[in-house]
Each structure stands twice: as structure tokens, then as C-alpha cells.
């Protein structure tokens, strides 16, 4: 499986090219910021009627990762739904699909700022998940250690022979990992943005997603 291996607080982790994080010791797959139901929410609020295929595309990609990894635990790191109404408005077909993906595994929904309440879907709902030596939560806390979070949708740009290449990216230092957004309709925040630059240690690494995940010193 294509991925980039690294260690956090003694845990051996793999950054997958899809933007998911794999913890093989626990057979745990972690994805962040799925933003399911985003197109529905935008239309509901009087905005454009975007192609309504974002949820199915995100679930398609998640299904591929689950099939490849045969994960026993799935942690959705918050902002899994674009809002709570979007979760409720999910078409029956997509609810059943989620239920099928959940079958036979432990599934944890971490609360995010977009989806702070409990959801009427299978799985466990938690503010955060401690699983020694790591802690899974939506938004990184300064000073934390062994922390896996999302929220910022990090992306990074590097330049190679005059070409700027920008990809969603994992940000990793010795305290934390910040996951890129997994959802189809998500944009990114540059690693050089102050919010990320201040959070991450100077020696932090950005792992660019794609067919072959590539670590680079985090662009600032």
C-alpha cells in the first residue's frame, strides 16, 4: 500500500496518499473533515445548486480505503457533516451506504465545529478519543502531545524546476499530526498561513498527498 510511514509518540503511523491516516497496530483508519452534505447545505441556504455528487464521491473514496486497509476501527475526526441538518437530510441510499461501511467495525464520530451534536447514525459520538499514546480530536490544542487532529484542511506548495505543485498535506511534528480534509468539496489552508505556522514546530514536515505521498520540510 502506498503510504509514508512515520512515528508519533512511539506510535507507528502511515500517511496514505488519499489523505487518510493508518495506524496499523490498532488497524485504525482516521479521516478528517468529510463535510458530507455540503452541496445540500449550500443550496438550502439560497446559494448555488452545486453538483450533488460530493457525498457519494467522498464515500466512494472512503470505501476504497476501507477495502484496502481492512480497518477494524474508523475515526472520523470531526466536520464529518457540513452541518447537523445536512446529516439529517442525507438520502436514504447514502445512510444505508454508511451503515454498510460501518458493519463489523468500531466507528467513532468525533465532534467538529460543523457537527457539534450527536447524529442519528450508527457509531460512537465523542468529543475526543484517547487511545494511548495518542489523542484524536477535531481542533489541535497548543501544548498537546501525541495529538491527531484535522479542522484546518492543510495544503502545501513546493516548487520544482519552475513548477508550483500544491496538494492537500499532512502536517507532522513530534507533538502532533494535522490531517488534510478528506471530503470532496473541501479547499485547503496553506501551511504557511499563520494559524498553521504558529501551531507547528520549526522542524515540522508536510506530507503531500497524491499517488505517492511525499514528505517535505513544511513550507512556511
Amino acid at each position: 500500500m502506498k503510504g509514508h510511514d512515520f512515528t508519533l509518540a512511539g506510535a507507528r503511523l502511515t500517511a496514505l496518499g488519499s489523505g487518510a491516516l493508518w495506524w496499523s497496530e490498532h488497524r485504525l483508519l482516521c479521516v478528517s473533515d468529510l463535510h458530507l452534505g455540503k452541496s445540500e447545505r449550500i443550496a438550502r441556504r439560497g446559494g448555488a445548486t452545486l453538483p450533488p455528487y460530493d457525498t457519494r464521491d467522498t464515500l466512494n473514496r472512503l470505501a476504497v480505503d476501507l477495502a484496502r486497509t481492512e480497518a477494524r476501527i474508523v475515526v472520523c475526526l470531526g466536520d464529518s457533516f457540513d452541518d447537523l441538518d445536512a446529516a439529517e437530510a442525507l438520502p436514504e441510499e447514502e445512510r444505508l451506504w454508511i451503515a454498510r461501511l460501518q458493519a463489523g467495525r468500531r466507528w467513532v464520530w468525533i465532534e467538529g465545529n460543523h457537527d457539534p451534536g450527536p447524529l442519528d447514525l450508527g457509531g460512537t459520538h465523542l468529543a475526543e478519543l484517547p487511545l494511548a499514546p495518542l489523542t484524536f480530536r477535531h481542533i489541535a490544542r497548543p501544548g498537546a502531545a501525541g495529538e491527531i487532529s484535522g479542522h484546518y484542511h492543510p495544503k502545501a506548495t513546493i516548487r520544482a524546476r519552475g513548477r508550483a505543485i500544491t496538494r492537500p498535506a499532512f502536517l507532522v511534528d513530534r507533538d502532533r499530526v494535522i490531517l488534510p480534509a478528506y471530503g470532496t468539496y473541501t479547499g485547503g489552508l496553506h501551511s504557511h498561513d499563520a494559524a498553521l505556522a504558529e501551531l507547528m514546530r520549526p522542524e515540522a514536515v508536510a506530507i503531500l498527498t497524491g499517488p505517492r505521498p511525499q514528505p517535505v520540510p513544511m513550507p512556511r
Binding site: 509514508h4 510511514d5 512515520f6 512515528t7 513546493i158 516548487r159 520544482a160 524546476r161 513548477r163 505543485i165 507532522v172 511534528d173 513530534r174 514546530r201 522542524e203 515540522a204 514536515v205 503531500l208 497524491g210 499517488p211 505517492r212 511525499q214 514528505p215 517535505v216 520540510p217
Partner: peptide
């Protein structure tokens, strides 16, 4: 720009160059 095999090759090349230049290895 053309996104294809060349981009992956370049990215790999540049990533290892940058990591080496920064004295960083795979894991922090």
C-alpha cells in the same frame, strides 16, 4: 502545465532534495 508521470517524478526528486538539504529524515 501537464499533470502526469513527470509531475510525480519531479515531486519525488524535489522532496528528497529538500529533505536532505534541511537535514531531515523521514520521521521528525
Amino acid at each position: 502545465p501537464v499533470a502526469g508521470a513527470a509531475e510525480e517524478r519531479l515531486l519525488a526528486e524535489e522532496a528528497s532534495r529538500l529533505m536532505a538539504a534541511a537535514g531531515l529524515h523521514d520521521a521528525p
